[in-house]
């Protein structure tokens, strides 16, 4: 019983999906799904995010000189199982931004490479279900010399990051809940100008990007073919400053956002190739110095199995 259940969880791969709203981040590093040993899940993804209203500090407003600001993301994501308890993940997004009104130029380019190691040290039966605990560590760094200081049209903040996350998951039958908390350390960045004003004048091109925390809660239905979940996510910077009245946003701003959304994953070809489709969306319900964005995304994932046939102890069992 126990073994079978574990297998179910491992089976259909790393739902590799990326959530993007100004801060691109891989979502597989935030779900309680591990790839089996020597299995590699990879796939393209696309997301579209847009906002018309934004929070200038805590004041919600629109801007006729921006209209609607949209962000499109074309990404490639992958998740490899070193073992069933240790996975590595990556994501590489290409980002394109645009404003429908005003004169500001759109921006596009290859953004940041993210790498994560995901470790599941604890997996226990408990109260008729299974409890598991994860530790996830990640780094990200910009792949190109893109412009950070052109918000809200910059494609990213150009900051190197390191993150550490703890995550807990409980599954009983097909019902599950997952919660995680992440601390993200973000490095200072260099901008093209030689001075800037925050709450005081800085005579340097170096800008402090405040560290941040991400808090993610997800719950719903999960079996070997289908995941249907509701997600609440909160991103909070520890520090930073508010956009002053009618000023432009700046990479060193305080930036907070709470989103609610749904995520679906369906395995199309469970027996042969393990192709799965992922789709989802979310909307921003609260924020500070960020756009009130609504996001939709979709992706297709394919699992490659590098397991030698003779050594199949970690290979997931087929359940149907």
């Amino acid at each position: 019983m126990k073994k079978k259940f574990f297998a179910n969880k491992l089976i259909y791969l790393g739902t590799c999906l990326l959530f993007f709203n100004q801060i691109a981040r891989a979502q597989t590093d935030m779900d309680a799904i591990m790839m089996g040993k020597n299995r590699f899940c990879i796939g393209p993804m696309y997301s579209y995010s847009s906002w018309k209203n934004y929070w200038e500090g805590s004041l919600k407003r629109d801007n006729q000189n921006l209209g609607t600001v949209s962000t499109q993301m074309f990404g490639l994501m992958g998740n490899y199982g070193i073992s069933s308890k240790l996975n590595v993940l990556f994501s590489v997004p290409y980002v394109k931004t645009r404003a429908t009104a005003g004169t500001l130029h759109s921006m596009q380019g290859l953004q940041d490479l993210s790498l994560f190691v995901k470790w599941m040290p604890v997996e226990k039966e408990m109260m008729g279900g299974v409890f598991s605990l994860y530790g996830i560590a990640g780094v990200s760094f910009p792949l190109t010399d893109y412009v950070a200081d052109f918000l809200p049209l910059s494609i990213g903040l150009h900051s190197k990051t390191a993150s550490a996350r703890v995550m807990a998951d409980y599954q009983a039958g097909s019902f599950f809940v997952t919660g995680s908390a992440t601390y993200v350390l973000r490095d200072n960045i260099k901008i093209d100008r030689t001075s800037y004003y925050t709450t005081q004048l800085h005579l340097t091109n170096e800008v402090e990007i405040p560290n941040g925390g991400n808090f993610n809660f997800r719950t719903g239905f999960r079996n070997e073919r289908l995941i249907a979940e509701a997600i609440v996510n909160n991103w909070t910077t520890f520090g930073g400053f508010d956009i002053t009245r009618n000023n432009m946003p700046f990479p060193g701003n305080k930036m907070n956002a709470t989103t609610v959304g749904v995520n679906l994953k369906y395995v199309v070809l469970p027996k042969k190739h393990e192709v799965s489709l992922v789709a989802g969306g979310n909307t921003t319900v609260a924020g500070r110095n960020m756009g009130q964005s609504a996001t939709v995304y979709g992706s297709v994932f394919y699992v490659l199995d590098f397991t030698r046939k003779t050594k199949s102890s970690d290979q997931p069992a087929k359940t149907n």
């Binding site: 001075s195 800037y196 004048l201």
Partner: peptide, 19 residues
């Protein structure tokens, strides 16, 4: 726009919120 031209634009922009 090339990255270098954009750098020059932003280096000298001195627009809103600057001195």
């Amino acid at each position: 726009p090339t990255r270098e031209r954009t750098r020059i634009v932003h280096f000298w922009a001195d627009g809103v919120g600057t001195y």
